[in-house]
C-alpha cells in the first residue's frame, strides 16, 4: 500500500476564508434606512449642539478666514487684498515685541503657575481633616469674577507707599515697588495675579486625579521602604502624568492667548512691556473708532491659531509614548 502524497495537495492554496456574513441590509444608504436606524433622533439630539457650534464657533472662524484676505471696516463694502494683511502683520515691529512678551508671560506662568497647583493638590491630598475647606479656599479665587479680581489686585499693586503690597513690604523695610508702573516688574505682576486666579481650578483637577491613584501602590512603596518624596516621585507623578500632560498643554495654549490681565491692568503698557499677541490683535481691531484693521486682526488670529495647532500636534506626538 503506497501512499501517494500529492504535491498538488501539499501546495494547494488554503481555501479562501469564508466571506463575512453581510447582514442583509438592502440599500443601507437610503434615507428610509437612515430613518430606520435612528438617524433622525440622533440628528435631533445633536442639532442644538451643531447649531450652537455652527453659529458661535464655525461661522466666526469661517468669517475670520474670509476677512483675513479683505480690507474692511465692517460697514462699507470689503475689498479683496490677498495676503496683504499677513504681510502687514509680519512687517509690524510690534509683532516681535508682542511675541516676546507672550513667551515671557508663558514662561513665567509655567515656572510659577504650573508646579504650584500640583504641589498644593499633593499636600491637600495628604491632609486628613478639613480637606473640603482647603479645597474650597483653593477654589475661591476661581469663583471671583476676573474683572473684580483684577480691580482688587490693582489696589494691591498701588505703587504709592500706601499700596497694600508696598505697605506689607514696608513692614520689613522693603519697597515701595512700582509693580505695574515699571516695564520690568509689570509682567511678573500680571503672572502673579493670573496664577492666583487660575490655580484653584487646576488644584481641583489634580485632587480628582489623585483620588484615582490606587492605594495599593502606596502600600507597596511603603513596604519597599519609600518615604514621602519617593512615593510622590515614583507613584503619584507617574500616575498623574496623563492629567499633567493635558494641563500643561492647556496652560501653554491659555498663556499664549493671555489678554484679560494686560488689558485690564496695564493696557499693554508701560511702553508696550505687557503688549501680548492677543492685545495686538485687539489693538488692530479696535484701535480706531472709525473701524479698525479687522483684516490684520483676523490674519494675526489665524496665524496664532495655526501656531497653537501645530504646537499641540507636536506636543501630543512627542508625549504619546510617555502618557500611554
Amino acid at each position: 500500500m503506497t501512499t501517494i502524497s500529492s504535491p498538488l495537495r501539499a501546495t494547494a492554496p488554503a481555501p479562501p476564508p469564508p466571506s463575512p456574513t453581510r447582514p442583509r441590509r438592502a440599500r443601507r444608504g437610503t434615507p428610509r434606512q437612515w430613518l430606520r436606524d435612528g438617524g433622525l433622533s440622533t440628528l435631533v439630539i445633536a442639532l442644538p449642539m451643531i447649531l450652537v457650534f455652527g453659529v458661535f464657533s464655525w461661522f466666526p472662524i469661517g468669517r475670520a478666514l474670509v476677512m483675513s484676505v479683505q480690507e474692511t471696516n465692517l460697514v462699507t463694502a470689503p475689498v479683496f487684498v490677498g495676503l496683504d494683511n499677513f504681510v502687514f502683520v509680519l512687517q509690524d515691529p510690534l509683532l516681535g515685541k508682542a511675541v516676546r512678551n507672550t513667551l515671557w508671560f508663558a514662561l513665567l506662568a509655567l515656572v510659577f503657575g504650573y508646579p504650584l497647583p500640583l504641589a498644593a493638590a499633593v499636600l491637600m491630598s495628604e491632609v486628613r481633616k478639613m480637606r473640603g475647606l482647603f479645597s474650597a479656599l483653593a477654589y475661591l479665587p476661581v469663583v471671583v469674577p476676573p474683572v473684580v479680581a483684577v480691580l482688587l489686585w490693582k489696589f494691591f499693586y498701588d505703587a504709592s507707599d500706601t499700596g497694600v503690597f508696598n505697605t506689607i513690604a514696608g513692614w520689613v523695610g522693603l519697597g515701595p515697588y512700582p509693580w505695574l508702573q515699571d516695564a520690568t516688574s509689570a509682567m511678573p505682576s500680571l503672572v502673579l495675579e493670573a496664577t492666583w486666579a487660575a490655580a484653584g481650578g487646576t488644584v481641583i483637577i489634580y485632587l480628582a486625579a489623585l483620588v484615582g491613584v490606587r492605594t495599593e501602590l502606596y502600600e507597596a512603596a511603603e513596604v519597599d521602604g519609600a518615604g514621602v518624596w519617593r512615593k510622590i516621585w515614583h507613584v503619584t507623578l507617574p500616575q498623574l502624568r496623563g492629567v499633567l500632560f493635558i494641563t500643561l498643554i492647556l496652560q501653554v495654549i491659555g498663556t499664549a492667548q493671555v489678554f484679560l490681565e494686560p488689558f485690564l491692568f496695564t493696557g499693554g503698557g508701560p511702553n508696550n512691556a505687557t503688549l501680548t499677541v492677543l492685545m495686538l490683535i485687539y489693538d488692530y481691531a479696535f484701535g480706531s473708532s472709525l473701524g479698525g484693521n479687522y483684516g490684520a486682526a483676523t490674519a494675526l488670529s489665524l496665524m496664532l491659531a495655526g501656531v497653537l495647532a501645530v504646537l499641540s500636534a507636536v506636543y501630543f506626538r512627542v508625549t504619546r509614548p510617555w502618557s500611554s
Binding site: N73, L74, V75, F286, G287, S288, S289, L290, G291
Partner: peptide, 11 residues
C-alpha cells in the same frame, strides 16, 4: 462714545 467699541456698534 468709546473709541474701542464705536466701530463695532456702528457696524
Amino acid at each position: 462714545w468709546s473709541g474701542t467699541t464705536f466701530a463695532a456698534e456702528l457696524a
